[in-house]
C-alpha cells in the first residue's frame, strides 16, 4: 500500500521508493530508505504525512508520500 493510505499509530516497513533520482536523493538523505521501519503519526487530508522513522519525526508532502510503497 501507499504511505498515504496508512493510518496513525500503524507501524510498517518502507517497501519501495518511486520517483526520480532527485527525489530519491532527497528522501534517502533524511533517512527514508527501503526496508526502514517506520510509524505513521498523522495522516490528515491535504496535509503532509507525518511519520516517525530513525528516531525522527518527519513530514513528507502528500505528492511525495504517494510515491512511497509500504508494508504494514
Amino acid at each position: 500500500m501507499k504511505l498515504t493510505e496508512t493510518k496513525p499509530e500503524q507501524h510498517g516497513l518502507i517497501r519501495r521508493i518511486g520517483g526520480d533520482a532527485h527525489f530519491a536523493s532527497r528522501v534517502t538523505a533524511i533517512g527514508v530508505t527501503e526496508g526502514t521501519p517506520f510509524q505513521t503519526v498523522r495522516n490528515d487530508r491535504r496535509m503532509p504525512v507525518l511519520i516517525y522513522l530513525r528516531e525522527t519525526l518527519i513530514a513528507l508532502g502528500r505528492e511525495d508520500a504517494e510515491r512511497i510503497e509500504v508494508a504494514v
Partner: peptide
Amino acid sequence: AGAVQAESEAKYRWIQAVLAGVARSRQEQF
C-alpha cells in the same frame, strides 16, 4: 533513482555497522 537509492542504503549499512554496540537504536512507540 535506483542507483541513488542503492548508494544511500549502502551508506546506512555503513552507519549501522559503525554504530553497532555504540548506541542502541530501537524503534519504540512514538
